[in-house]
Amino acid sequence: MPHNIGYTGRRRFLKILGACMGIASAPRLSWALGQRSQFGIAEIDLPTSLNRTSAWQRGLFEVQNSTSIEINEDVPRVVLDSVDLFNHPFTVLIGNSAFDPVSTLAIENLRRYLTYGGFLLLDDASGRRESDFLESCKRLSRRLFPNLPLAALHGDHSVYRSFFLLDQPTGRFQISPQLLGVQLNTITPLIVNVNDLSGALMVDDAGQYVHLPVPDGDFQRRESIKMLINLVLYALTSNYKHDQVHVAELLRRDEF
């Protein structure tokens, strides 16, 4: 029979010291069984899409530093109609202008990818509220999921709670206080950020940030890093905090 363990002052102290907030007290081993199964970010390669490898590498560095996730810092580019897409469960598409409709083969490939567990972040770098890139994203979403709306993700969505407590998304700009997303059953495999997230994370060859976020500068960049970490955690853990036992704990802490 399992032993029942009572709560004593010493145990409570050790519990708080060593395990509260999921913090372990021992150094971790830090490699997966093969680099390909480590977490990485791949960019979608379209004729008009932007390439911001340095932004994602910077972001992955922060993910590695802040969480227990093991990362692969390579940022490959993949095309939508290739089987290679399925080697990269987390992908991003960055743009600041309209992109042409992708092929039917690409749509079918991407739909299977998202339906079976892939994640796509559409990052609008235009700095405009209703940009041509956003219109192209909406058209892509309609073709992928004709019956599912690309809708605002409100404050109770898990993406705002997956690691940090966030009130709103941010990036290089502060254009919209909400992410957009497509809800597929209980998960949101496609998310749009119109605030140029990658723009806030880009660094040059010397490791200096390229853009100063507006209007709040470095504070806004810090929030952008937190946004990326939340997106990564959400893509990996989805809505696990909605499991019954977690809901009870979160309600107790009044943080849900």
Binding site: M21, G22, I23, A24, R28, T67, S68, F163, F164, K241
Partner: peptide, 27 residues
């Protein structure tokens, strides 16, 4: 299904995030 994921370990404390910013629950 009840899932528990270890999101943060001892090594990650160096990132200097305040616990008020985090949305983590005890294991």
């Amino acid at each position: 299904l009840i899932s528990f994921f270890i999101l943060r370990t001892h090594d990650d404390l160096s990132s200097n995030w305040s616990s008020d910013e985090l949305s983590l629950i005890a294991f």
